[in-house]
Design a protein around this nucleic acid. Structure first.
Lengths: 153, 153
DNA sequence: AGGCCTATATATAAGGT
DNA sequence: TACCTTATATATAGGCC
């Protein structure tokens, strides 16, 4: 890379930093978009300004990409039960129970009802269940997509 | 050499697409990194290859950015299909329809039924819907955690 | 602020090895 | 296949509105 002037380091001047921030943010988002289109691949970019505003773009959607990322085995942010010191998963929620709650919430139209009154362990179970659904959906998506694509594996 | 206007559209040739994919992926990741450093801002980019491999970079970490994103009240950026194909969001799946499918699948005990017969766009809608549920659950978890807990010691 | 301009810096499509 | 090279396309810092 050509070295000189514009080094990649924190910009002190507030005004310049902000202007540059906006430009680069747009460029980054655009690149991500082009990338997704060009390869018809799942991709997402999320950016937060110091003010706390979030700028994000994803294909097919930020949520779908994020959810797919979270479902990755290597992902460490999974709110899985592997945490607590030596606390055992206890009984938590059964798969069936989790299903009923989700189902009920869907009928009422309020997801909040699904988690109402639940403890952390139970919530984790519920999340695991949700992730399970997501995986099946993802698998189906890959299946459908396979009908017209690529150089995979 | 480089023919004019490199249109942003899906590359058919497998070999060329793969090569280009790698280059642009690296470029995108690099841009994200530079961005984060230059503005000391939270940012992340996640990319999936057709083979299913995930490439991601985030500052301070992908997980932290993703978590922060999920904590947002209601952020959802979409990649308007306009750029490349002019593909319209079409009918996709309505939120209600997605709910019914999930609900039905739960009753039958088979998630596969939830995605059966769906096209890619519809499946993505379903994914987004599932993500919504997850968001609520995550919010609930944060709430509970705030009361003083130890699930993530 | 938010555009527009222009000189550089960077990224990258082809082609070669 | 993956790594070079090189010509060209894009991005963007800094001005100037």
């Amino acid at each position: 890379m050509v070295r000189t002037s514009v080094e990649i380091r924190y910009i002190e001047d507030n005004s310049k930093r902000h202007t540059s921030f906006t430009k680069r943010r747009q460029g980054l988002i655009k690149k991500t978009k082009d990338f997704a289109v060009k390869f018809n691949a799942d991709a997402a970019t999320i950016v937060f300004s110091k003010a706390g505003n979030v700028f994000a773009l994803g294909h097919p959607s930020v949520d779908s990409v994020v959810s797919r990322y979270l479902a990755e085995p290597s992902s460490e942010s999974e709110l899985a039960a592997s945490s607590g010191g030596g606390v055992e998963p206890a009984a938590a929620l059964t798969e069936e129970e989790a299903g009923k709650r989700i189902s009920a919430a869907l009928e009422v139209g309020s997801w909040d009802s699904a988690v109402e009154g639940l403890g952390l362990l139970e919530i984790e179970e519920l999340m695991a269940e949700i992730m399970k659904i997501r995986r099946v959906v993802a698998a189906r998506a890959a299946e459908v997509e396979a009908r017209g694509n690529d150089w995979k594996s």
